[in-house]
Design a protein around this nucleic acid. Structure first.
Ligand SMILES: [Mn+2]
Ligand SMILES: [Mn+2]
Ligand SMILES: [Zn+2]
Ligand SMILES: [Zn+2]
Lengths: 168, 168
DNA sequence: ATGGTATTGAGACTCGTTCTTAAAGGAACC
DNA sequence: GGTTCCTTTAAGAACGAGTCTCAATACCAT
C-alpha cells in the first residue's frame, strides 16, 4: 500500500501558509512552555513543511536520516507531539492501527476517506456532521476535545480489482 | 482508567440475542470457511457473551486464564478476528491506540463518546450522520466498508476534576 | 564566559499483536 | 479401530510503533 496519493479538496499540495507563519506559531508555543528552539526542532519543522500532505512518523525519520543532520527517533516523536499540541499538526488514522500526521494551519477541519487497497486519501468537509456531533455532546453534557471520523473502503479505481483470497 | 462503566443507550447489559443465535451464526461462518468448531472457540464465544459491553482482548485472555480451560493468547486473537469477520463483534477505539470489542448481533449501529479521564463510554445513535456519510461516499464513488467515528473528551462527572499538569 | 535548565541520542523497554513450529485433534474413509 | 490428511493449538519468539532512561550536550539569560 502506497503511503500517499492525495486527492485534496482542491487546495495546494503544501499548506498555503508560509514556513515563517508556521515557525512563528511553533516558537510562540515553545516560549509559553519555556521550551527552547533547537537545531533538531528546526529541522523537523522544515521536514514537516516539505512532507506530503499526509505522512507517518517513520517517513520523517527516514527522510532525516538520509540528510546530514540526523535527528533521533525519540526526538522526532517528542517534536511531533509538540507540533500537535500547538495546533500545527493533526494526527489521524490510516487504518485500525496506523497513524498519520498532516499540517492543519490555515486549513479547514476535514475528515478522510481512506482506501484500504491503494492507500489513497480523499479529504471531505461536512459542517453538518460536525454540528450534529456538537449537539450530541451537548445532549450528554460531554465536553468534546477531539474526534476521529475516518471512513475505510475502496476508492473508485480499486473497486474493480480482484479481491484477495484468505491466505492460510 | 477503569475499563468499563457503560451508560448504554437503554439496552440490556448483555446482547438481547440468545447465546444460541450468536453461536449459530459463528458455526455457519466457520462452515462456509471449512473451519472447525473447537473447544477453544466455544469457550471464547461464551466468554465474549458474558463479557461487559465493551471489552479488550486482554480482558478475555485474563478471564480465560483464571478458569480451568486455558486458551492461548494467539488463539484469542485469531478467534476475535473470526468473530469480527462474521459480524458478531465490532472493533472500535478507546483512544488513539487502544482497541475494544463489542457484540453487535441484534443491535443497532452506534458510535461512542469516550471519556479520556475515567474511561466511561456513552453510546450514541445518529442516523442522519450515517446518511451523510453515505452521501459523501457516493459523491466520491467510494465504496464504504467500515468507519470509525469516536468522540474523545470529558464526561459530565469528569469535567470538574482538576486537570493534570505537564509532567517533565 | 558561566551556570542552571532543557534537550538530546542511543538503546533498553513496553505493549499489543502476529508469527513460527512442533505436537495434538478431528473428520472421513477403510 | 486405524490411517490419512488436514486444521488447530500452545508456547514463546518476533515484531513494530511508540516511550522511557540517563549520561552527555546544547541553550540562553545573565
Ligand atoms: Mn487530511
Ligand atoms: Mn458500543
Ligand atoms: Zn484505492
Ligand atoms: Zn469521565
Amino acid at each position: 500500500m502506497k503511503t500517499d496519493s492525495v486527492v485534496g479538496s482542491g487546495g495546494s499540495q503544501i499548506s498555503a501558509n508560509t514556513y515563517e507563519e508556521v515557525a512563528e506559531r511553533f516558537r510562540a508555543y515553545l516560549a509559553t512552555q519555556s521550551l527552547r528552539m533547537t537545531r533538531q526542532r528546526e529541522e523537523l519543522l522544515t521536514a514537516v513543511f516539505h512532507a506530503p500532505r499526509h505522512f507517518e512518523a517513520e517517513d520523517l525519520i527516514k527522510t532525516l536520516r538520509e540528510r546530514q543532520g540526523h535527528v533521533s527517533r525519540a526526538t522526532v516523536y517528542r517534536t511531533l507531539s509538540l507540533l500537535e499540541e500547538c495546533g500545527v499538526l493533526r494526527k489521524s488514522l490510516f487504518g485500525h492501527n496506523r497513524h498519520f500526521y498532516e499540517s492543519v494551519v490555515g486549513r479547514h477541519h476535514h475528515d478522510h476517506l481512506v482506501c484500504i487497497r491503494c492507500g489513497k486519501i480523499q479529504e471531505f468537509e461536512e459542517p453538518r456532521i460536525e454540528e450534529m456531533q456538537e449537539q450530541i455532546c451537548t445532549r450528554y453534557g460531554f465536553k468534546i476535545l477531539d474526534h476521529v471520523h475516518e471512513i475505510f473502503g475502496a476508492c473508485e479505481n480499486c473497486q474493480n480489482e480482484p479481491t484477495e483470497a484468505r491466505k492460510h
